[in-house]
């Protein structure tokens, strides 16, 4: 018997922000098992003194995968089995769409990761997706659907997708989405948002995301209009107008060392303008505004001296006197991790065992105005990075060799990730950031995932322990996996029949949400 290679032992933090002295949190990253144990038990496990662990606790820890008789190779085989199920069934079930109506933008933000596209000239930049290309994209989606795939969401992206001169193009895309019951998300700078409110209300938009970089002139300097016009007041007025029309808005506040004061200044300004009070009223059913969410994120800037990282943003929030709960609601990465851990603690689903971090690996169609397909949002505009194109004459998708590489940039294959306890929580990390750090899209990128996970898990589990005294906090994949026969494992890994694999997976109870 030994401690699993995917085991994490974390402190428990109580509501008073102090460590709970007599308990520790065990997390098995491979099976998604979260268990609270006496501190002395955790000490025995760390020292390998398994015989001193209480018998009933021993059985519980073995059943849930924290301690195991499996070799490392057998644990990796479990990882590969789960990744294979995800790749064959779950990922394959859905096609998401990301459309860039144009590369053009009315802003010239100094840190924009698409700045390189400006070198290609005004004519190339100003191209707007044609009616024929839009028809071809949706014909390709219809082909996917006719072959069994489900259609996911459509995200409008740019350039700037909501420039008022492109109203007709956005309407045509939205009409096509509505006909196929696809929900729409849009990432916009918000400058022309008011012009699009009628379209957003008419079609199934689920939210609008608008970023800010500070108050007033700070924002105007960093979110710079290409003609030098002020942007802050107009963006906030547009956001308020959208909310009044019942449209949900995610406001992301970019933070770097250059605009640290924006944390307090923007929060104060949002309060002064009534955004936060009106959101509280909405939650109590006292108005019909759209949902307003705001959160802080480390600006992805090429200036490494200015880059804070997600951990840096969380640290700044804490040092400004904000609580751990506030950080887990309003910090981008910490919030994502905290919401996910809380979901697991509801015990109605296993850990998400996909090893693909984002649409680049999961096979979404990211189409530029010329019909080229790209793997990653940050690779657009660089034709060398294209993985295929939409054939305008046939209405179908054609892939090149690079597509195969991206499909398998997953955490069951990246060497550093295969034996990492955070595998199913960070999934290999962002490929674009890996390129920044290592010059290689196909390396791992850990970023601040480990810190975010430890922070959120310790706080959420600690609070639950104090409130409920519950020790077994989540479901564990170790249990259904233990019931698979050798033949069933072989069939999952080798059968060419997706229905046969699905039948085994369903019988084993690995997908309780279906």
């Amino acid at each position: 018997m030994r401690l699993s290679n995917y085991e994490m032992i974390l402190p428990l933090i109580g509501a008073d922000e102090k460590e709970i002295d007599d308990r520790a949190l065990l997390v098995n990253g491979l099976y998604g098992a979260f268990d609270i144990v006496p501190k002395r038990c955790a000490d025995f496990l760390i020292k390998g003194k398994f015989s001193q662990v209480d018998s009933s606790l021993w059985e519980q820890l073995a059943r849930r995968g924290h301690i195991t008789t499996k070799s490392l190779e057998e644990e990796i085989a479990d990882l590969e089995l789960l990744a294979h199920i995800d790749r064959r069934i779950i990922q394959k079930s859905r096609i998401d769409l990301i459309i860039m109506p144009t590369y053009d933008c009315n802003f010239r933000c100094p840190y924009c990761f698409e700045r390189k596209r400006l070198a290609r000239g005004e004519t190339w930049l100003a191209k707007v997706m044609s009616h024929e290309m839009i028809q071809a994209i949706f014909a390709a989606l219809d082909d996917y659907r006719s072959r069994g795939y489900g259609l996911g969401n459509c995200t409008l992206y740019g350039g700037e997708p909501l420039m008022k001169e492109n109203l007709a193009t956005v309407r045509e895309i939205a009409e096509n989405c509505a006909q196929r019951e696809m929900k729409i998300e849009v990432l916009t700078n918000g400058y022309d948002l008011a012009s699009f409110i009628p379209i957003i209300k008419e079609f199934p938009f689920v939210f609008v995301q608008v970023p800010l970089d500070g108050v007033g002139k700070t924002n105007d300097r960093l979110r710079r209009h290409k003609e030098g016009k002020d942007t802050y007041e107009r963006i906030l007025n547009n956001v308020d107008m959208a909310l009044e029309h019942g449209i949900g808005v995610n406001m992301r506040i970019n933070i770097s060392k250059e605009n640290l004061s924006s944390i307090d200044e923007l929060t104060d300004d949002l309060k002064r303008r009534g955004f936060l009070a009106k959101e509280n009223e909405r939650r109590m059913g006292q108005n019909q505004r759209g949902e307003f969410v705001h959160y802080f994120k480390a600006t992805v800037t090429p200036d490494r001296n200015s880059f804070l990282g997600e951990g840096g943003v969380a640290r700044e929030l804490l040092e400004s006197g904000r609580s751990a709960e506030y950080v887990m609601e309003h910090s981008c990465l910490y919030g994502i991790v905290a919401r996910y851990i809380r979901k697991l603690f509801q015990k109605d689903t296993y850990v998400d065992f996909s090893t693909a971090i984002c649409n680049a690996e999961r096979g979404a169609l990211l189409v530029d105005p010329y019909g080229l397909l790209f793997p990653c949002w940050e690779s657009v505009g660089d034709d060398d990075m294209a993985v295929g194109r939409v054939d305008e004459t046939q209405g179908r998708v054609l892939w090149n060799f690079a597509k195969a590489k991206w499909r398998l940039r997953t955490s069951d294959r990246i060497p550093a990730c295969r034996i990492c306890p955070y595998n199913f929580f960070c999934k290999g990390g962002c490929a674009a950031r890996a390129k920044d750090v290592y010059g290689d899209y196909f390396r791992e990128y850990c970023g601040d995932h480990k810190q975010a996970f430890a922070f959120a898990a310790s706080h959420i589990a600690g609070k639950m322990w104090q409130e409920r005294g519950e020790a077994e906090l989540s479901l564990s994949l170790a249990e259904p996996l233990a019931h698979l026969t050798r033949k069933e494992r072989y069939m999952i890994m080798n059968s060419k029949s997706i229905p046969d694999v699905f039948a085994i997976v369903k019988k084993a109870g690995l997908l309780p949400q279906i």
Binding site: I90, K92, L151
Partner: peptide, 26 residues
Amino acid sequence: TEDEAKAYFAEMEDFELDGDKLKDVA
């Protein structure tokens, strides 16, 4: 690699289940 080449062909395969029923899991 052989696995990557197989993944390329998998892009063109039909999905033999009802994707609309499974897509919310993904």
